[in-house]
Nucleic acid binder design. Structure first.
Lengths: 341, 341
DNA sequence: AATTGGTTCTGAACCGTTACGGTCCTTTCA
DNA sequence: TGAAAGGACCGTAACGGTTCAGAACCAATT
């Protein structure tokens, strides 16, 4: 029976026809995919674990790019891509246990997320992305710390010393407001933690007391958050010459807030982002471009690569500093400070 | 064993602990989801069949919105969402047969697509979206014909009689160029066919010979296609007073082409779209807004709704004509024609 | 002491497929 | 003509759970 469908070479055309005929007559709908999966021990799909309410991911251009790359890799391999529902509110891990998949990709979840733990317990290959290197599973990501360090160096060379930061959420609990150095250091989102670390290193080296730098956190990731975060920084210290945002989406929001206050960018204030999304490009945003699509594709390739795994692999993709039209020397500040005390 | 994991009430805590202990000691990774699915006849996932190379969908704002809505509905129900790889080039239907799902959502595929046929043969509930009503499965969509008819009426009332159209692809074969009335009528993409029909009806009623209206088709759906499509129309008939595009993305491309030619919108030429995407809103595009997110959510709800199905349901969502800044009376044309011969 | 009722535990059947090995029949060659 | 070889076909045993019937056990009631 099975042969009639999948192994035409194992039987005569005549018998095959007869089998298929009676199958149709009996209303047999073809081999059951689940039973097949059980027998062959192949689900034909990979699971994707996302941090957010699934729907949130579809609002974030970077996440969409990642998804696209991953989907591309899956399509190439003829594998399905299962979006695993992992509502961060409910600690309900059952969805991870129920997922019939040959492997998992985990994208940017907090490192203490119970869903992540549940994935790691499953006896299937896993690739984590934008996560700390666990040493036990494959990883793909970028050098967030290094990239942000480079961006900071750029700002420092322009003369910026008094800066403010708007970042995405740092942990599972909501904290829309200023961030203590402790919280920065203990952040559960690998990406955000490293970007902040890169900033802190560069500015500390330039003689700035990082603990005095206003860092504002926003739980929701959208332009409105960027705007209100920028407002909060500017309210605290109107003298900042640069607003460093840890994503382009936040930076675009910061730009609108700057405009609302009548601040000209970059003349009155410098604004930077991170990611290199399309809308940022159009706005001429100074940012770090990261290959989000490639990241997704790399994750998929790593997972689907059938070759024998010896030990976990770790892939770092290259980033590129994009100097746009939103960064410049602070007004009358560069030289002063350059030759200053 | 199974009880220890799923029915804590069926056995004493003591035994449960013992079972779980030895399970851990033996390295048992928990119940296998595939075997569970086979036995319970529930896969815990719904399949999504998309027309395009999977990755293309992630470039189309309308598709993303749909995906978001569908993901939302799935998340609510705790169900997974499986993206089924359906490469339109290969006629390989195996991926549909392999998908272990409890149901399918089919989004905007050509009505003669073999993948669609394969889905319909599977003995699981199905919801088609932006597809013709098959009468045998649930459907969700909008009144494309009516909405476009209304948009056309708006243009006609402004005085437009000499118009051109840029539409998305009409069939599986690539045809980047003008479209015969025959091809319009026989289009395999339900949505595009109906939008064109709506236009043809409205303009025919206004006394325009539709067979003389230049209609240009583009296979790829992006702004560049919109621009080149607009160019092709304008090259054929530089006198057209309005460019009607069957999607906002195409319309945005048309806007850039108009700008490139030094045509002021809407003074020199009117441009309209369809969908109501964000970027169009920002451009002040005259368009039809359709609730893409709601469409996805409705499709998911319909599919996951456990209530007894009596007969296939058909849901039509409301659309809204958005009159933006890209439509106006043709230059010196409205009155002339209004009182004209 | 026997019956009843209730709970905890055990074992077997089943879900639908694929892999494997064995039987049977036909063909080929010594 | 007989043996060997090969192809076509068929039956059966897993795969790893869930479910359900009934056994075993214990306590309470008659």
């Amino acid at each position: 029976m099975s042969n009639a469908y999948n192994r035409p070479d194992q039987l005569s055309p005549e018998l095959r026809r007869r089998v298929l005929d009676t199958a149709r007559r009996l209303g047999y709908p073809g081999p059951d995919p689940v039973a097949r999966s059980l027998r062959t021990r192949k689900a034909g799909a990979v699971g994707l674990l996302l941090t957010e309410n699934l729907s949130y991911a579809f609002r974030d251009p970077a996440a969409i790019g990642f998804l696209e790359g991953l989907a591309l890799a899956c399509e190439d391999a003829g594998t399905g891509l299962l979006l695993v529902p992992a509502n961060p509110e409910r600690e309900d891990v059952a969805s991870v246990h129920r997922a019939g998949v040959d492997g998992f990709v985990v994208y940017s979840v907090p490192d203490d997320d119970p869903h992540l733990a549940a994935v790691l317990e499953r006896p299937v290959p896993t690739v984590v992305c934008d996560q700390p290197d666990l040493g036990t599973v494959d990883r793909v990501g970028i050098d967030d710390r290094g990239a942000m360090y480079e961006l900071a160096k750029h700002l420092i060379s322009l003369g910026h010393r008094r800066v403010g930061v708007v970042c995405m959420r740092l942990a599972r609990d909501r904290n829309d407001g200023f961030v203590t150095p402790d919280r920065q250091h203990a952040a559960h989102f690998h990406v955000q933690r490293n970007r902040l670390t890169g900033l802190a290193e560069a500015f500390s080296e330039a003689g700035v007391d990082w603990s005095q730098v206003p860092v504002v956190e926003r739980f929701d990731h959208n332009m409105a958050s960027g705007a209100s975060g920028a407002a909060q920084v500017l309210d605290r210290d109107p003298q900042v010459t640069a607003l460093i945002c840890t994503s382009d989406v936040l930076a675009l929001g910061a730009l609108t807030e700057a405009a609302r206050r009548g601040l000209r960018v970059p003349h009155d204030i410098t604004v930077t982002g991170f990611d290199g999304i399309r809308a940022g490009e159009e706005a001429g945003l100074t940012t770090v471009r990261q290959p989000v699509l490639e990241k997704g594709r790399a994750a998929g390739k790593l997972l689907l690569d059938a070759s024998e795994r010896t030990r976990p692999r770790s892939v770092n993709l290259a980033t590129e500093l994009i100097v746009g039209k939103t960064s410049a020397a602070p007004r009358g500040g560069a030289e002063e400070r350059w030759f200053g005390p």
